[in-house]
């Protein structure tokens, strides 16, 4: 059986090229072969969201995605959204508001919220609940997770201002 596949993809911005058996699951590739253990596996059936990664920016269940599917694409894991020294603004908000207890659901929530805020920086309460409906948490009762996300939704994102487009805008303002 010609089951070995050569795949190349970008993992958290780094190019990766490797040979894998065709039936390898993405989560196993990332956790066991590459060794990034931040992503968690819980339900193993696309229900809980603990294993959420971003595939070209869109959230997916890595527990039920074939590793071959990332060939030629960009994968972002929790490690990829965590700054080298410290925490991202989303992670800080979770800590500040008590949006985690055991932490098992947290990487998945952080990834989902990352994807949410990227497409919709100021979601309404209903949009937050709708988007996070598929991330389960057994500890917090969600109230503090919701508060954390709401605080981010209300923030005038400073990174907005720092985005390349905004920088260009500012530059033009200064020079005109």
């Amino acid at each position: 059986m010609t089951n070995v596949q050569l795949i190349s993809f970008s993992l958290n911005g780094q190019p990766v090229e490797m040979e894998i058996p065709g039936h390898t699951l993405l989560i196993d590739l990332i956790r066991d072969r590459i060794g990034l253990k931040g992503t968690k596996r819980s339900c193993d059936m696309e229900v809980c969201g603990a294993c959420t990664m971003l595939l070209d920016g869109d959230p997916i269940s890595s527990c039920t995605t074939l590793a071959v599917d990332v060939d030629g694409k960009e994968i972002t894991t929790i490690e990829g959204v965590t700054p080298p020294n410290g925490l991202s603004r989303i992670q800080k908000a979770f800590v500040l508001h008590g949006g985690l207890q055991c932490g098992f659901c947290t990487p998945g929530f952080i990834m989902a919220v990352t994807a949410l805020l990227k497409t919709n920086p100021h979601p309404t309460d209903a949009e937050i609940r709708h988007y996070l409906h598929g991330n389960l948490c057994r500890c917090t009762g969600y109230t503090k997770i919701f508060e954390a996300v709401k605080s981010l939704a209300a923030e005038q994102v400073s990174e907005d201002a720092a985005s390349p487009a905004a920088r260009r805008r500012n530059f033009r303002l200064e020079t005109s």
């Binding site: 696309e46 959420t52 595939l55 997916i60 989902a112 988007y131 991330n135």
Partner: peptide, 12 residues
């Protein structure tokens, strides 16, 4: 379609 399953299942 916006309400089928969850955001991850919907995206693929």
């Amino acid at each position: 379609c916006a309400n089928v399953a969850n955001v991850r299942v919907r995206s693929v």
